[in-house]
Simulated scan of single mutants.
Amino acid sequence: MGRVTVPRRILRLRQGTPSHRPDTLAAEEPMEIRVGGRPLTVTMRTPGSDFDLAAGFLVSEGVLHAADHLAGIRYCAGATADGGNTYNVVDVVLAAGVPAPDASLERNFYTTSSCGLCGKASLDAVRTTAPWSVAEDGLRVTPELLSALPDRLRAAQKVFDSTGGLHAAGLFDAGGRLLCLREDVGRHNAVDKVVGHALREGLLPARGTVLMVSGRASFELVQKAVMAGIPMLAAVSAPSSLAADLAEESGLTLVGFLRGDSMNVYTRTDRIDTGPEDASRDGE
């Protein structure tokens, strides 16, 4: 397996005083995703939960919707100098009758860890039609529950403590219980790993759940949540305007700047239970 962290000796300067010391970096390596032996894309990721990443990516692209759509996932033998496996090529086998990815999904170049949309054949391909709707999901949570999620997410991060360089995504139930957490140098990869886990465990659509992310809320992360049937996305940082537009269009609740007891709710505010005054609120 690839390494999650990589040691490196560095020169450290503190108030002009130099010292040499070991440091730990988050690993970043390319991973090629194939479907039925056919190359589909290459993404830069932190090794680990690679099968979840591949499965989650295909959920986001509308290829997989349920666990029984997936016949298997395996690593392909890599051409290393000693004849070993690089563990950087994953092949997904679709179940009989599941259509292969449309040719428009194929990337002409690799997807970076910071931008999961690079290389899309067209912008229209981004607005994939979800197999289910999140608009009618009856999830309701209190502000107090939401306020607790960033600390719970942070407490569950194992690799961040040693590197400080990883994004995290966590799936919580309506009671605030952590169902799954994944870390990666790319925030979209972390979400794909969570969604892939949910798919493989038969949890899609992930109704009544909250997806908590450690960074900002982009259009792509909203799309991934909608494609997984997740009705609420919460982020510690800002959403983009396009993310808010897609959330409103899809009926997803989008929460940003979730820090301490402060937060901004951009769409579907009716899912936030703030007390008796809720009765006068609309569902925007």
Score class of each variant (00 low, 15 high):
52 D>E: 15
277 E>Q: 05
278 D>L: 13
49 S>F: 12
53 L>W: 11
83 G>S: 05
237 S>G: 05
155 A>H: 09
277 E>H: 06
134 V>A: 10
217 A>W: 11
174 A>P: 01
193 K>C: 10
109 F>E: 15
106 E>M: 09
3 R>P: 00
225 A>Y: 06
14 R>E: 15
279 A>P: 00
70 L>Y: 02
228 A>K: 09
44 M>K: 04
160 F>Y: 15
268 R>S: 14
78 G>W: 11
203 L>I: 07
225 A>G: 13
193 K>V: 12
202 G>N: 10
63 V>G: 00
121 A>V: 05
115 C>Q: 10
151 D>A: 14
251 G>K: 01
29 E>V: 15
219 F>V: 00
179 L>V: 08
103 A>S: 13
72 G>K: 11
28 E>G: 00
122 S>E: 06
70 L>N: 01
54 A>F: 02
29 E>T: 12
33 I>G: 00
115 C>A: 06
284 E>M: 10
52 D>F: 08
94 L>G: 01
3 R>L: 15
59 V>W: 09
210 V>M: 03
88 N>P: 00
224 K>R: 13
11 L>M: 10
43 T>M: 10
107 R>A: 09
245 D>T: 09
42 V>A: 04
244 A>S: 07
256 G>M: 04
86 T>S: 14
219 F>R: 09
74 R>E: 15
29 E>L: 15
161 D>S: 09
85 N>E: 14
23 D>K: 03
179 L>N: 01
281 R>P: 01
158 K>Q: 12
237 S>H: 12
175 G>L: 07
111 T>H: 01
229 G>A: 05
19 S>R: 13
173 D>N: 13
272 I>Y: 03
190 A>R: 07
157 Q>G: 04
255 V>N: 02
275 G>W: 01
255 V>K: 02
136 E>G: 05
8 R>D: 10
225 A>S: 13
28 E>A: 12
76 C>I: 14
178 L>Q: 10
112 T>R: 06
1 M>I: 09
21 R>A: 10
149 L>E: 06
45 R>V: 15
239 P>D: 13
188 H>Y: 11
146 L>W: 07
277 E>K: 01
98 V>Y: 04
56 G>H: 03
104 S>G: 02
282 D>S: 12
211 L>V: 04
33 I>V: 14
156 A>I: 07
210 V>L: 08
252 L>T: 00
129 T>M: 05
64 L>T: 02
109 F>T: 08
212 M>D: 02
193 K>H: 09
84 G>C: 02
50 D>N: 13
214 S>D: 10
280 S>V: 15
56 G>A: 02
34 R>Q: 11
264 N>S: 12
182 R>Q: 15
86 T>A: 12
63 V>E: 00
242 L>N: 06
42 V>C: 03
133 S>F: 08
142 T>Q: 01
194 V>S: 01
189 N>P: 02
228 A>D: 10
73 I>K: 00
128 T>M: 08
195 V>T: 09
211 L>S: 03
